[in-house]
C-alpha cells in the first residue's frame, strides 16, 4: 500500500521534471543547442512571477500569464542577438556562452533578490488534496502532472499540425534547404527559444508554488531536466515525460527507504537506463 502511494507520488513528481525538461528538449531538438542556463532561466522566471504576484497582488496563474510573453520576448532576443551568432559546426562556443549566462543569471538574481528562500504563494491549493480511493494525492502535484501532459500535447500539436511546426522540423533536418523554402533558419531558432521560454515560465510557476527556491538552485534543475531528456531519447517529448517519471519514481522510492537517498536514487536510475539503452528509451528514428 505504501509502495503504491510512493509510486504515484513519484509519477506525479515526474510531471514537474518533464516540465523542467520540455523546453530543453525543444531547443535541443530544433537547433542542437544545449542550453546550460536552462535551470537558471526557470529560477529567473520564478522570480519574475513572484515579483508580479507580490507587486500587484495577482493570482500566480495570472502572473505567469503575464510573465509568459515577456519570457518569450527575452528568449527570442537572446537567440536572435546572442546565441545565433555562436551557433555553428563547433558545439563549444554555444556551451561556453550559455554557461556564462548561467553564472551571470545566478549572480544577477543573488544581487537583486538575496540568497533568501522564496515561495510563490498559491493559497489553499498548497495543501489541498483529493482522495483517489487507494491513495490520497495533493492537488498541486496532480495539477503539475496534468499541466505537463497539456504542455506536451500542445507542443506536439504545434510541431505536427501547424506550418510553424513544419518549419521547425524542416529547419532541424536541414537549415540550408529550409532557406530555399523561404524560411529564415535564424528566425525559426529565435521563435523556438521564445517558445521554450514560455514552457520555462510554466515550469517556474509550479516549481515556485510547490517548494522554496533561491538563486542557487538552477543548475540542479538543469541536471534533472537533462536526465529526463536523455532517458527519454533526444527529441521525443513523450519520451521526456517518461524520463521525468522514471527519475521521479526513483526519487520517491529512494526517499521512502532513506530520506537521504532521494536525489541519489534519481541519478542512479538515470545511469542504469543509460547503461541499458544508451540512446534513451524512445530515440528519434531519423538522426
Amino acid at each position: 500500500m505504501i509502495w503504491i502511494d510512493t509510486i504515484v507520488q513519484g509519477i506525479l513528481l515526474g510531471g514537474l521534471y518533464a516540465l523542467f525538461a520540455a523546453g530543453l528538449s525543444l531547443v535541443f531538438g530544433i537547433m542542437r543547442l544545449v542550453n546550460l542556463a536552462h535551470g537558471d532561466m526557470i529560477i529567473f522566471a520564478a522570480f519574475a512571477i513572484l515579483l508580479i504576484t507580490g507587486s500587484v497582488g495577482l493570482n500566480p496563474f495570472l502572473a505567469a500569464l503575464i510573465a509568459a510573453p515577456l519570457m518569450f520576448g527575452l528568449g527570442w532576443a537572446l537567440q536572435r542577438f546572442v546565441l545565433n551568432r555562436v551557433l555553428g559546426k563547433d558545439i563549444l562556443p554555444p556551451l561556453l556562452v550559455t554557461f556564462g549566462l548561467s553564472v551571470a543569471l545566478q549572480n544577477g538574481l543573488l544581487e537583486a533578490f538575496s540568497a533568501d528562500s522564496q515561495r510563490i504563494p498559491a493559497g489553499p491549493l498548497e495543501s489541498a488534496s483529493v482522495d483517489l480511493g487507494i491513495v490520497t494525492v495533493g492537488w498541486m502535484p496532480l495539477l503539475t502532472f496534468a499541466t505537463a501532459i497539456a504542455v506536451i500535447i500542445g507542443l506536439n500539436q504545434i510541431f505536427y499540425r501547424t506550418a510553424l511546426g513544419r518549419a521547425f522540423r524542416a529547419t532541424s533536418d536541414d537549415p540550408v534547404t529550409a532557406s530555399l523554402m523561404g524560411i529564415a533558419p535564424k528566425g525559426i531558432f529565435a521563435i523556438a527559444t521564445g517558445l521554450a521560454m514560455v514552457v520555462v515560465t510554466i515550469a517556474a510557476l509550479y516549481l515556485g508554488m510547490r517548494a522554496n527556491f533561491d538563486p542557487s538552485i538552477g543548475p540542479a534543475r538543469l541536471i534533472y531536466a537533462f536526465e529526463a531528456v536523455i532517458i527519454g531519447g533526444l527529441g521525443s517529448l513523450w519520451g521526456t515525460l517518461a524520463g521525468g517519471i522514471i527519475i521521479g519514481v526513483a526519487q520517491t522510492m529512494g526517499a521512502a527507504i532513506n530520506p537521504e537517498w532521494q536525489i541519489l536514487a534519481g541519478h542512479i536510475a538515470f545511469l542504469i537506463v543509460l547503461l541499458i539503452r544508451p540512446r534513451g528509451l524512445f530515440p528519434r528514428a531519423v538522426d
Binding site: 506550418a163 513544419r166 522540423r169 532541424s172 533536418d173 536541414d174
Partner: peptide
C-alpha cells in the same frame, strides 16, 4: 534534399508556405 522528418505532402506544403 527532401526533409526526412516531413511526409510527402508536408514536403510539398513547405515549398509554398512562406511565399
Amino acid at each position: 534534399k527532401l526533409f526526412p522528418s516531413l511526409s510527402v505532402e508536408e514536403n510539398l506544403k513547405i515549398g509554398g508556405q512562406v511565399r
